[in-house]
Design a protein around this nucleic acid. Sequence first.
DNA 1: TCTCGTTGCGCACACTGTACGCAGAGCCGA
DNA 2: TCGGCTCTGCGTACAGTGTGCGCAACGAGA
Lengths: 239, 239
Amino acid sequence: MPADEQPVASVWTRPRRRREQPALSRAQIVAEALDLLDTEGLEALSMRKLGARLDAGATSLYRHVATKDELIELVVDEVYGQVEVPDIQGEDWRSAVTVCATSARAVLVKHAWMASVLGQVGLAYLGPNVMRLNERMLALFEAAGFSLPEADLALSTVMAYVIGMGTTEAAWLTTLARSGRSEQEWMDSLRPAAAEASKPYPRLHALTTASNEDVEGARADGFRYGLERVLDGLATRLG
Amino acid sequence: MPADEQPVASVWTRPRRRREQPALSRAQIVAEALDLLDTEGLEALSMRKLGARLDAGATSLYRHVATKDELIELVVDEVYGQVEVPDIQGEDWRSAVTVCATSARAVLVKHAWMASVLGQVGLAYLGPNVMRLNERMLALFEAAGFSLPEADLALSTVMAYVIGMGTTEAAWLTTLARSGRSEQEWMDSLRPAAAEASKPYPRLHALTTASNEDVEGARADGFRYGLERVLDGLATRLG
DNA sequence: TCTCGTTGCGCACACTGTACGCAGAGCCGA
DNA sequence: TCGGCTCTGCGTACAGTGTGCGCAACGAGA
């Protein structure tokens, strides 16, 4: 086959009309990136790999997204959109906030890569889903009786707790996933080393050698306990 | 100069005795890495750059450190060692925990890159400084009247709050540092865009258009408010 | 003197984000 | 019907990354 072969006019070789559908859209890219992040983790997300998943070259993505960081911001906002916020119901603000916080924790744990990214992106930027979430939670705290400025403080407090807890859990789950073992297996295999290392610290030693059945349930219980305390603390302000 | 020139015996060309001092040690590497992280941020840390700072090749570092991730874990533990924990004083546990939490926040803000890394490293690993910190805080909560298991829960709650708040603040400071502007300048230049974007959300709109003098102080106040609430919530468990 | 373990380093590989400019394709005024 | 003009995708290229491999130099011990 000569190198400078003339293109033959044929149904098979003729390039398809491209504008039938634009073949690449920001929404598609974001969706595929989210899937890639969820299945393979943050460090597995590269523009080339993402392009390959979309049957496109790596640099084609840059027509729809300015930079990789911007893409990540878009995905983060997408994830924020998955957090469930119940409608305003003034009399029972605690259960409403609990639903929302629990949902946020679930989302963070489901998309564990978020934890690594929150430290760079934070809540400072202006994604529509983040704004919607914040607005609705502010409304919730206002309906409970907080002034708007204090509702802002209360919201920050709850979100900080959820993010901190979610970060720690997600980090744990990430190292776990990298090891390939199950949570219980890892716990059991780590037990002797942890017990040995914690020997100089009696309280840690007691905790690590204590029974560790149902670690996953224990994590959920821990989250609930802390959330209850935070809400208790906020309740004291409503006197 | 011929390419295959013979090495001339001379005081200047003769290689120095290397074992005068080992020239590279794990402690030195960790210290230099910490400095590099603090001054240039997480994505500026590369093994080559770190090696250059120590007058060494990049791969030389691997004699003292298994992998870059391990190096980061070492630096993280080093940073945890900077958190101040007051001695046990049972009667005034609130102020003791406050000192510790405030110190932890200061450390997180000072080493803003920590926020990006906590999502991968978490508190799950076994660094000596982390263990020491946890042990002493457990003692503090026990002295306050919590049982050991509940002291563990209380510790997680407070730490989650501090980490969540610190993560958000650090993310904010990082994007700020990247822009090169001061906090007040950035706030002022962002004001119109933020006001415009928050128009559909009345509460957010009210908050963003409210007076924003002394944003740094406002951040500190916000942290104190939330911490007080968390401690209030824990106090309810002590009857 | 010979050997051995330890340390530092140069090279190489596979991979990254993304700037640049070209090649088609649809659209719009002439 | 025929040029431009804009939009989209892509191939190439560049500077940078982490790190495996094997060599060279050294102090110490036999």
